[in-house]
């Protein structure tokens, strides 16, 4: 199981939790499990999310490996200037 930290405004979509646990070994699996477990997250995930894995931000990268002890934080999709 991987612990995923959500940002505050996703709490209402995840049964009031800001940290959820799902079974996933990659970014893609993680997103799929999140959508299955918490359908309320689907619209945000469809709009785009970034993922911070042990402090490094990934904007896409489905196959990025996640270890059970990894720190995983979901973030909005990042844009810059």
């Amino acid at each position: 199981m991987v612990k995923v930290r959500l940002w505050g405004s996703l709490r209402q979509a995840a049964e009031g939790q800001t940290e959820v646990e799902v079974e996933a070994r990659t970014f893609k699996e993680l997103l799929d499990r999140l959508v299955e477990t918490y359908p309320g997250l689907a619209p945000q995930i469809a709009r785009g999310v970034s993922l911070s894995l042990d402090g490094v931000i990934y904007r896409e990268a489905w196959f990025t490996e996640i270890r059970p002890e990894s720190e995983v934080v979901l973030m909005p999709y990042m844009t810059g200037g």
Partner: peptide, 21 residues
Amino acid sequence: TLENVPAGMSENVTSHCEFGH
């Protein structure tokens, strides 16, 4: 307006976010 906007605001409010611990 996205699903994450609390009720009671103008329709001009399109999104809401919250961060922190």
